[in-house]
Design a protein around this nucleic acid. Structure first.
Lengths: 136, 136
DNA sequence: TATTTAAGGATAATCATTATGGATTTTAAA
DNA sequence: TTTAAAATCCATAATGATTATCCTTAAATA
């Protein structure tokens, strides 16, 4: 976290208590929270924080490449502080998201990609988590 | 298309001109249109059609498995009448989406998936399309 | 500590999507 | 055909997530 604080300063972002709280909450967070999840959590400590602050902080983190915005839950955006390349498994029922750290060979055949310049990939796995499977 | 019309009847959906127009537009459509794209197109022929009708028709098609709802463009939902399993390549600039029909082995290691019941997967490739690459 | 400059917070605006409800059209049956 | 029942249409309002605005306040730095 110290490491990240430094990065903040380096990039001309002011360090405020609200940002630090968001930062701490996200650090090592594997729950892929939505903006609302973050807002509700931080509000416990800073009851006057507004959604605007949350969104603006997320935007800043994204710009620095410290945060990934996931487009996997159709209902809302999810945020992932994970930094190395990985994939996701989502429960189609409760929408829980789990990281998948594994290396897959997924090279698009030349004829399929045309003259696209390929930059990256992301695999979404769909399934039922143990809890939801139990419920039926 | 006849084939799909039959399906419509089979499933107790009334055939209306608006629905037929949406249907025709989607048939063999590889452009992954948004609801607005569809609305704007159909409006040329049926100037009074409303967004509600578009969304309800899309919903009906989804329920029958004739249409896939893509959560790949963070700004809006895209629709894909493609029926067999395939993946997508999206231009990070213009958001164009291209189908990738290829078979990838992407089996999640046992330890990574826990006791999830795996149901499917979808690979998103990111890149720059030829047009956007040219523009820089 | 003073000055500059960005951030915070309240709130309004926007945009995609969903819900509502009365008028209209389709379907199916007489 | 004619008609009754049911589903659809469309206009519009409601919702919910995200973004923009604007004024006040706080952080950085000399």
């Amino acid at each position: 976290m110290d490491f990240k604080m430094k990065k903040f300063r380096d990039i001309n972002l002011k360090l405020t208590p609200q940002r630090l709280a968001i930062f701490e909450y996200l650090d090592d967070n594997k729950s892929h929270p939505s903006a609302e999840d973050i807002y509700l959590e931080i509000r416990k400590k800073y009851p006057t924080i507004s959604f605007a602050t949350v969104y603006k902080t997320l935007e800043a983190l994204k710009k620095q490449g410290l945060l990934l915005e996931l487009t996997i839950d159709p209902e809302r955006r999810r945020y992932d502080p994970g930094t190395e390349h990985h994939h996701h498994l989502i429960c189609i029922d409760c929408k829980k998201i789990v990281d998948i750290h594994a290396d897959f060979r997924v090279d698009v055949p030349e004829d399929a990609k045309g003259s696209f310049e390929m930059l990256g990939n992301h695999i979404e796995f769909y399934g039922l988590c143990p809890e939801c499977k139990k419920k039926g």
